[in-house]
């Protein structure tokens, strides 16, 4: 049973995909995880180990083969169907930006607000202020195809933040960003999440990014994924960029890297 302060709870969650040719792909073996309210947890693991699958199961996009997923006491999957109540206050940011080409940037960002019935004036106002939050001022009316990959990801982040979700599921959100912009976005993400007390599950390939952002880091084994290690990051949030240069920070990054290399060997 998840603890009382738990926001997202995974209990013995496993996922086996059946391919068209009838082969079984064991993507997730057995994951137990509790993410507390307002906690920032990163999932770290090699490519193809099932990180996206885990986020999709939490978001109610992929039913687990077995096990249970709970969001604030409400099961995400009920009799194989996604629960609208459990997933209501989640926002998922996909590995690809997934902006719709028939909307411009502000319309894309305003889309979830529109789907909640917010009127045009107020949702576009919010979208514009989100644009400036993620550094896209001046591109409000641009078409997604005219933006760089990194800019599109930032627009997708703005869209995910728009509804003020209680839980954010981020699938490698900053993979296409340069190191400088990535730092900026991480600072911004940290600020927004702390200000609103958002619970975050972040998938990343960057150990440094995971250490910088997270309260805890979950290291996953190669497919089928299972939790091999959970690291608690001792630094107080919010964290300044300079923290990344400190010895303690570097040491933790090094330790996690060594563990992962050892596990892979």
């Amino acid at each position: 049973m998840p603890s009382p302060g738990s926001d997202i709870g995974l209990k013995a969650v496993a996922k086996t995909y059946m391919t068209r040719s009838g082969d079984a792909v064991h993507a997730v073996n057995r994951v137990d995880l509790d993410i507390a309210r307002g906690e920032f947890v990163s999932l770290l693991g090699p490519s193809g180990c099932g990180k996206t699958t885990i986020l999709r199961m939490i978001a109610g996009l992929e039913p687990p083969t077995s096990g249970e997923i709970v969001m604030r006491g409400e099961a995400v999957w009920q009799k194989g169907r996604r629960s609208a109540v459990a997933t209501r206050d989640m926002a998922m940011m996909f590995q690809e930006a997934r902006l719709l080409p028939w909307f411009n940037i502000e319309e894309n960002i305003a889309l979830p607000l529109r789907l909640r019935g917010e009127d045009e004036k107020s949702r576009l106002e919010k979208a514009r202020s989100l644009c400036s939050t993620v550094g896209l001022s001046g591109f409000e009316r641009a078409r997604p195809s005219n933006l760089s990959g990194g800019m599109r990801q930032r627009a997708a982040l703005a869209r995910a933040l728009g509804t003020e979700p209680q839980a954010l599921l981020l699938d490698e959100p900053f993979g296409a960003l340069d190191a400088m912009t990535r730092d900026q976005m991480n600072i911004e993400l940290q600020r927004v999440c702390l200000a609103r007390g958002v619970t975050v599950a972040l998938v990343t390939h960057s150990i440094a990014e995971a250490v910088f952002l997270s309260d805890r880091i979950v290291a996953l084994a190669p497919r089928p994924s299972r939790v091999v290690d959970i690291y608690t990051v001792p630094f107080e949030r919010p964290r300044p960029v300079e923290l990344q240069r400190s010895a303690a920070f570097q040491q933790l990054v090094g330790r996690i890297r060594d563990d992962i290399l050892r596990a892979a060997a």
Binding site: R56, A59, G60, L61, R82, A84, T87, R88, M90, A91, M92, F94, R98, L100, L111, P112, L115, R116, T163
Partner: peptide, 9 residues
């Protein structure tokens, strides 16, 4: 895109 719409309820 369909998943995106599902995730946005």
């Amino acid at each position: 895109d369909r998943d995106l719409f599902i995730s946005m309820q």
